[in-house]
C-alpha cells in the first residue's frame, strides 16, 4: 500500500514538472520537429551549419593550441619508455626504404619512357590546401573534425582530406574560414575504393568503429588480408590512388585497417580535384535544328562555358596524377 502511495506521488511529481514547465514541453516538441525536418531535408541547415562552424572555429582555434600542447606532452611521455625499441624499428625501416627508393626511381624512369612512347597525356597535378584540425567532434554517432580552412581558401564540399598517412575523410560543410570533415569511419561515410593486387572495386562503409567495412564486393571474390586499399575515381569524388588502409578480417564482411589515426590528425591537406569529363561529339544528323534565319552562328556567339565540338574533349588538360 505504502509502495503504491509512493509510486503515485512520484508519477504525479513527474507530471507536475511538465505542468509547471510548459516551456520544457514546447522546446522538447520544437527539438523533435527540427530533428524530423532536418533528417528529411538535410540541405535545409547547410548554410546554418557553415555559419556555426565559423563561429565555433573562432573559439576552437584558441582552445586547440593548449590541446595540441597537451597531446604532444602525452605523446612524449609515452615515447619516453619506448625510445630504444622505436629507434631499432626505425633503423630497420630506413634500410628497407632505401632499397625501395632505388627500385622506385628505376620504375619511375620506365613509366616515363613508356608514357612518352605511347603518347599518354600527362597527369594534371592535384593541388592541395593545408589546414589544421581545430576541433575533434567525435561523438557516439558522429565522426567529424573541424579544420581551419574554408571557402576563402577555395575549399569545396566533397573534396578529399588526407593527412601524412592517407585518406582521412571528405569535406561535408564549408564556412568562410572553416570546414567540417566527415571521417571515413562515420556512419554516413561511403567511399568507392579499389583493392590493389586483385583489382576489385568495393564501397568502404563507415560504421563508427575503427575499421570500416568493405561492401558491394562482387560475389565469390577472394581477397587476401593485408592487400592495400586505395581510392578510385569512380563517382568523380576523389583522386585515384590515395592510400586508405589494408584489408583485415571481419566477422561477416572484410574490414579495412586504416593507415591514419583519426585521433592524432593534426595537420591535413584538402585535395582540389576535378575529375576529367569526356564529351563526345554527337553523331551527324542529330544537331538541334537552327532556329531563326538558318545562318550558322559564329564560334564567338556561343554562350559562355559552351564546350567546343571536337572529339573526346577533356575538360581538364589530362588525367589527375595518382598520389
Amino acid at each position: 500500500m505504502a509502495w503504491n502511495r509512493n509510486r503515485r506521488r512520484s508519477s504525479s511529481g513527474s507530471w507536475a514538472v511538465l505542468a509547471q514547465n510548459p516551456a520544457l514541453v514546447i522546446f522538447f516538441v520544437i527539438a523533435l520537429v527540427l530533428l524530423v525536418v532536418g533528417r528529411g531535408q538535410e540541405a535545409l541547415f547547410d548554410d546554418a551549419r557553415g555559419a556555426a562552424n565559423d563561429v565555433s572555429a573562432v573559439f576552437m582555434e584558441v582552445l586547440s593550441v593548449p590541446a595540441s600542447e597537451v597531446n604532444q606532452w602525452i605523446a612524449g611521455l609515452g615515447s619516453l619508455f619506448s625510445t630504444y625499441d622505436e629507434n631499432q624499428k626505425l633503423r630497420q625501416e630506413n634500410a628497407k626504404l632505401r632499397a625501395a627508393q632505388s627500385e622506385l626511381s628505376e620504375l619511375q624512369r620506365k613509366v616515363q619512357r613508356y608514357e612518352g612512347l605511347l603518347k599518354i597525356p600527362t597527369d594534371a597535378p592535384v593541388t592541395a590546401v593545408a589546414a589544421r584540425v581545430i576541433a575533434d567532434t567525435a561523438g557516439p554517432f558522429v565522426r567529424t573534425v573541424l579544420i581551419n580552412a574554408g571557402r576563402a581558401q577555395d575549399v569545396l564540399k566533397g573534396q578529399a582530406v588526407v593527412d601524412d598517412r592517407g585518406l582521412l575523410g571528405r569535406v561535408i560543410a564549408t564556412g568562410n574560414r572553416s570546414s567540417r570533415v566527415l571521417l571515413v569511419t562515420d556512419l554516413n561515410s561511403r567511399i568507392p575504393v579499389l583493392i590493389e593486387g586483385v583489382n576489385l572495386k568495393a564501397i568502404l562503409v563507415g560504421d563508427n568503429t575503427e575499421r570500416p567495412v568493405l561492401e558491394y564486393l562482387p560475389s565469390g571474390s577472394r581477397i587476401v588480408a593485408g592487400a592495400r586499399v586505395v581510392t578510385t575515381s569512380d563517382g568523380a569524388a576523389f583522386p585515384p590512388g590515395i592510400a586508405i588502409g589494408i584489408v583485415a578480417k571481419g566477422e561477416t564482411s572484410p574490414r579495412v585497417k586504416l593507415f591514419t589515426n583519426e585521433g592524432r590528425a593534426d595537420f591535413v591537406r584538402i585535395l582540389k580535384y576535378r575529375a576529367p569529363i569526356d564529351v563526345d561529339e554527337a553523331p551527324s544528323g542529330t544537331e538541334p535544328p537552327d532556329k531563326g534565319d538558318g545562318k550558322a552562328k559564329p564560334a564567338s556567339a556561343q554562350p559562355a562555358g559552351a564546350l567546343p565540338t571536337t572529339n573526346a574533349v577533356h575538360a581538364q588538360p589530362g588525367r589527375p596524377r595518382p598520389l
Partner: peptide, 19 residues
C-alpha cells in the same frame, strides 16, 4: 551544429535529461 549531429538530436536528449 558544432558537432555535425542531426539538428535537434542533442537538444531532444538534453531536454529529456533536464526534465
Amino acid at each position: 551544429f558544432a558537432t555535425g549531429s542531426p539538428v535537434g538530436f542533442c537538444a531532444v536528449m538534453y531536454l529529456f535529461a533536464y526534465g
